[in-house]
């Protein structure tokens, strides 16, 4: 009788825990470009979102301007060892183009990048290409996972997740939950 009761309690506890885990990331965010909603994802609880907008940046030394699409960055509020960013660059329409775009930003994101694996997968039901690797930044090693997601209507979404060495490995679940919540909105 006693063991039955405790079993019941345990089942209840597990159920509550599962419900809590499911409701962990429920702040949906929509990425738009010129009023067009492209995709959405969910920001984990106790993470902070930084959103930008389309603009042109100029190298003050060389004076060359570069077009920049909206970049959205998320990270835990109290931990800067983890970072994840999304961008949907204009006029990049295929996974191949997305990978070329990545080539042109990864040298700024990570120093001495070494690709450890690449794979084709599906994210949010869409074809995607994942590049995993390591590098360093500010004298510390980092792990990066760059993904190019093929959105309908000739757009791609590029997502980069970065874990610095020494970051809490449980953040991997949070990052994967963000990818799991990714949905195209077209």
């Amino acid at each position: 009788m006693h063991s039955l009761l405790s079993l019941g309690f345990r089942a209840c506890a597990v159920a509550t825990w599962l419900m809590g885990a499911q409701a962990q990331a429920d702040t949906p965010v929509t990425y738009t470009d010129q009023g067009r909603a492209l995709f959405r994802f969910e920001v984990p609880d106790f993470w902070t979102l930084r959103t930008g907008g389309p603009r042109e940046l100029e190298d003050t030394a060389l004076g060359d301007a570069r077009a920049v699409s909206r970049v959205m960055g998320i990270r835990p509020v109290t931990d800067d060892n983890v970072w994840m960013g999304f961008v949907s660059p204009s006029r990049v329409s295929s996974i191949q183009g997305g990978l070329r775009y990545l080539e042109d930003i990864d040298k700024f994101l990570v120093k001495d990048p070494t690709v450890t694996s690449t794979s084709d997968t599906r994210i949010g039901g869409l074809p995607a290409h994942v590049v995993r690797g390591t590098g360093n930044r500010d004298g510390r090693g980092v792990n990066f996972t760059a993904t190019v997601i093929d959105l309908p209507r000739d757009r791609v979404a590029i997502g980069v997740a970065i874990l610095r060495d020494g970051a809490d490995p449980s953040y991997v679940d949070a990052l994967n939950a963000v990818f799991a919540s990714f949905r195209s909105l077209q």
Partner: peptide
């Protein structure tokens, strides 16, 4: 949790994702 890096004073990864050579 240490209250380190409050706000976005230095956000290297965000800043780097802005800069691209693609259209260059």
């Amino acid at each position: 949790g240490v209250s380190f890096g409050v706000g976005y004073g230095y956000d290297p990864f965000y800043d780097s994702m802005l800069w691209n050579d693609y259209y260059h």
